[in-house]
């Protein structure tokens, strides 16, 4: 065991960092796209079904196929990391868009009505009412998306994007369970850590006594 760690320790660290970078970058893009999209949908109701349906379809594409589809694309295909980040962003969109939309929609309509009647502008309604009251649900979406991404990012190694999947693929190819575990265990720990951390944040964002006005 210690011999294994001595041999692969640095590589585990490098690949874990790579894994984190792929997931982190994808989450950043997915949030930058997904949260505004979710907000926009609450203001343009009739687009909600088609748009959420579309991001839902992205979700159903098998990840290995998704990486394959993106491979021949210009610019994107030049660097494996670009493909990986693009694909992961796609997978992360659904929980983020859906939760942002549902979170704001789920706010007591009386509260939003009063906010307008007191003279809030659209922007004030968003920053003072919608986002703070939906924060818990939005964070829950980010949490689901992150955990999913950490998992799917292992497949990115198939197109040479690196990350902990590299160990897994090598292990499978050489029938070496230790190598498979060297990829799977850190990936699982990453997922658990992300889940726990975002869970804490989510709890912190809960409104005391929300539901009662």
């Amino acid at each position: 065991m210690s011999g294994f760690l001595a041999q692969y320790g640095t590589e585990i660290r490098t690949l874990t960092l790579e894994h984190l970078w792929l997931t982190g970058a994808a989450m950043l893009f997915a949030s930058l796209i997904g949260i505004p999209t979710g907000i926009w949908l609450t203001r343009h109701e009739r687009w909600s079904s088609p748009v959420i349906g579309f991001v839902n379809v992205i979700q159903t594409i098998p990840s290995l196929a998704m990486f394959g589809f993106l491979l021949p694309l210009p610019w994107l295909g030049e660097r494996a990391a670009r493909i990986a980040i693009m694909a992961l962003t796609g997978y992360a969109l659904l929980p983020i868009v859906r939760n942002t939309y549902a979170g704001i929609r789920g706010i007591d309509p009386t509260i939003r009505d009063v906010a307008r009647a007191l003279g809030m502008t659209q922007m004030q309604l968003l920053t003072k009412v919608d986002l703070p009251l939906a924060a818990g649900v939005i964070l829950a979406g980010l949490r689901t998306a992150t955990v999913t991404c950490v998992g799917i990012a292992t497949i990115a190694a198939a197109v040479g994007a690196g990350g902990l999947g590299e160990f897994i693929f090598r292990g499978v190819a050489s029938v070496d369970n230790r190598l498979v575990l060297a990829g799977a265990v850190p990936a699982a720990l990453l997922a658990l850590a992300a889940d726990g951390l975002l869970g804490l944040l989510e709890r912190w964002a809960q409104i005391p006594g929300a539901g009662k006005s």
Binding site: T110, A115, K128, L133, P208, A210
Partner: peptide, 11 residues
């Protein structure tokens, strides 16, 4: 503006 359900902001 005052309504029955108060509409105080819970946060």
């Amino acid at each position: 503006y005052v309504i029955q359900e108060t509409g105080l902001f819970p946060h």
